[in-house]
Amino acid sequence: MSSTDHVKTLKIDGRDCSARAGETILDVARENNIPILRLCELEGLSTVGACRLCLVEIKGARKLLPACATAVDEGMEVTTNSERLQSYRRMIVEMLFTEGNHVCSVCVSNGHCELQAMAQTLGITHMHLPYRYPKKQVDASHERFVLDHNRCILCTRCVRVCDEIEGAHTWDVMGRGIDSKVITDLNQPWGSSESCTGCGKCVHVCPTGALFEKGRSVAEMEKRRQFLPYLTLMREERQ
């Protein structure tokens, strides 16, 4: 195989980039400091392509494609920031805000929340969609952590980190559609879960204040994810 099979060149927002075959558009954008918004994707976890915020335009492609799940190709021309993409992103973030009950001013993650930051980046000041105001539960049965369904955006990072990194698979999603929610074991109080090791990885990968440590007050919950690339690297090395 010649080296040209391994190296791909492409254009992202007009900039020439080179990439290794198999890398995703998001990988390459990251290496080149081109910001692409995303919520479900997290380096070190498997890709689900669910939040649709990283959709990009690719010249010649009929559909928009998720940067996190689309491998680079030779000569690809990618646009990450058209007016159309921006307006879709604003609407998708609005959908999340109106789907749950997100009140930043009283949230432990105020100031450290990825959803909040995204709304600021996109310049969202008010909602075009009506709020749903669903009745949702808060599970404080775990001795160290709390799950607040009101703030959950169903990104499934907790599900993936628990399954792929911790190996416990305490979390999963139940139901479907707008009634989906994350659960521990047989949809039982988190504190009574038999499989939870209490490692707290789920809390720290959660992009919002849906999962937090007990005893934190408004704006006090800062997430620490330094462990994730480290653990991923060690695991790859072992295999």
Binding site: D163, T170, D172, M174, I183, T184, L186, N187, E194, S195
Partner: peptide, 11 residues
């Protein structure tokens, strides 16, 4: 995993 079984049963 228990949560997966529950997730499937309710899906």
């Amino acid at each position: 995993p228990l949560s997966r079984a529950y997730g499937v049963a309710t899906f």
